[in-house]
Design a protein around this nucleic acid. Structure first.
Lengths: 233, 233
DNA sequence: TAGTGGTCTAGACCACCGG
DNA sequence: CGGTGGTCTAGACCACTAT
């Protein structure tokens, strides 16, 4: 390959992307083999491969061994949400962070919680209720269940000083997660905890994490009014 | 390298991941150079590189040329949201899809819309109000502005038959996006359009897309009560 | 400026799966 | 079974940036 023709995988990616956009490769179409494209562009196959990988991750292409590469008929837009430790999220806005543990005790988990964790039955788990504050005002209320079978170390942590959120993120990375986001009206208990009027619309997130099929924790995080998730890319 | 020692990049990734989890590589620590790790594992540097790339994308590592690889002090959890074409999203649930165009006309965009698009001033744009239905009931109401300067072809599309959502996704992929999700109470106008009580909590999404700094569209999508976003990985 | 990650190449073999 | 994408290797050069 002469240096003059050297192409980066991003160049290749953009060329393919453009051909999809302008229907030269239409939805459902089969693209040439990586090797043929490499020949066309005068680059190595691995460079084409990398570009294709990226477009496949974006949801524009579908790739199968032997089946070749196909333009997805129904493109999917993907957005990535970054979920920082709550304390850092608050401090990043310049606000002062506060944390108040309401309770932490071993309890049998209700069926809804077991279902979210993918368990049929289980012994008692650690149930934590806590409030995160920003500038002294309620920011996020969390109702969390922690599988002490998977994370026994949590029992030795002083949760009045460090949030379960922070400890878990720092000490128990996960391999799987599920996250649901919905809008709900504050009931009486939430209204009291967040110091707002009952009925106020709130963003509610259910987040569950696993390490190789072993459930770690599931949390219902209720944000204060006006909270918004931001995603960009 | 002997075949017996051949390792896949996923193996390497898992080893590094484990070392981060068990604090062998603690937050803030600098990892050995890729080349040294490659020597330790008995694989090619590119294999280590790939593993490290993955962990960096996950938010566990930070990599800089010359600066080396560092374990992030504040791990970030990342979640990916798939945003399908609304019609397909509805049909995937087994429901019948309906679509009703309320209006589509050229108008000067209000400041808030210009701000979301990153514009200071602009000529009139195409303003589209439309309702997506599932089984005949309101599903998502969208209030959309389309930059006819970037997407003039949209003016030739019959938006009573095909939603702007679907046409844009199929014909105008984007290179940049911004997405915000919040909870809001339905005002009178929304309540009428979604056939619900005013004050009902609703999930509201603001989504804006660009092609290389050229704004394509911005939409405020208001979902029916009970709608939830699902993310997993 | 030197050291580190980022990328490209050319070639090889493997794994999956459609015909 | 054969064809395609997926991966690994060994080596080279480039680009960024900490020192």
């Amino acid at each position: 390959m002469t240096d003059a023709l050297r192409q980066s995988w991003k160049d290749i990616r953009d060329i393919i992307h453009a051909r999809i956009t302008d229907r030269r490769y239409a939805p459902g179409d089969k693209l040439p083999r990586d090797e043929d494209l490499a020949a066309e562009f005068g680059c190595a196959r691995s460079t084409v491969h990398r570009a294709m990988q990226h477009l496949a991750e974006l949801g524009l292409l579908e790739r199968k061994r032997k089946g070749g590469t196909i333009v997805r008929a129904d493109p999917i837009a993907r957005a990535t949400l970054d979920i920082p430790i709550t304390r850092l999220e608050v401090e990043a806005t310049g606000a002062s962070y506060g944390y108040r543990l309401e309770s932490a005790q071993m309890e049998p988990a209700p069926p809804a919680v077991l279902a979210r964790l993918g368990l049929k039955g289980a012994g008692p788990m650690l149930h934590v209720l806590a409030l995160h504050l920003a500038n002294g005002r309620p920011h996020i209320f969390e109702d969390r269940w922690i599988c002490t079978q998977t994370v026994p170390e949590i029992l030795a942590v002083d949760l009045t000083r460090q949030s379960a959120n922070e400890w878990l993120v720092r000490h128990r990375p996960h391999t799987q997660y599920a996250l649901q986001v919905a809008a709900r009206a504050a009931d009486a208990a939430l209204a009291r905890r967040l110091d707002i009027e009952p009925g106020t619309p709130l963003l509610v997130m259910h987040r569950t994490t696993w390490w190789d099929d072993n459930p770690i924790t599931t949390v219902r995080a209720v944000t204060h009014p006006g909270y918004a998730l931001h995603m960009a890319g």
